[in-house]
């Protein structure tokens, strides 16, 4: 249920994200999802990749600052109001979300959630109208 997310610290410099993408590409690592959070000086690139351990290793070798955190990934119907139902469930149970990002394709939408309390979040999501995605699916 828990999925490992790789975060990379990048300075706000042209081409930095591309360098990350190139390195991963060279090592045959696929990015399933990513998002970038930034402020004036730096950004944090958060990614779900096909091989976290390997990605972490190659990026570290290339002198990137990396960290691995566990997140939860769910899929729900790509229709109006679907996400809201899921989030309602979390809000009712007082689960705080640090950040989230999402992408959709066809009938399904996938959402990555980084809650403060991961275990509690997973427990609640299991009773929500959505499917939790396991690691094996993402590797494909």
């Amino acid at each position: 249920m828990k999925i490992k997310q790789l975060s990379v610290f990048v300075e706000n410099k042209t081409g930095r994200i591309n360098e990350v993408a190139q390195i991963l590409g060279r090592h045959g690592i696929n990015m399933t999802a990513f998002s970038l959070a930034d402020n004036a000086d730096f950004g944090i690139l958060r990614m779900i990749v096909s091989d976290v351990e390997r990605a972490e290793q190659v990026l570290r070798e290339a002198h990137f600052g990396v960290s691995v955190t566990e997140v939860v990934c769910l899929s729900c119907a790509n229709v109006p109001g679907a996400l809201s139902e899921v989030l309602d469930g979390l809000a009712k149970e007082q689960v705080f979300i640090e950040y989230m990002y999402a992408f959709s394709e066809g009938d399904t939408a996938r959402v990555v959630i980084r809650p403060t309390d991961l275990d509690r979040c997973i427990e609640i999501l299991q009773h929500c109208p959505c499917c939790l995605i396991s690691k094996s699916i993402l590797k494909q």
Partner: peptide
């Protein structure tokens, strides 16, 4: 300054 390995975070707020 450079942040030491192990102290990088996925959260902007923690870095700040």
């Amino acid at each position: 300054v450079e942040v030491r390995d192990g102290f990088y975070s996925d959260e902007i707020s923690k870095m700040l």
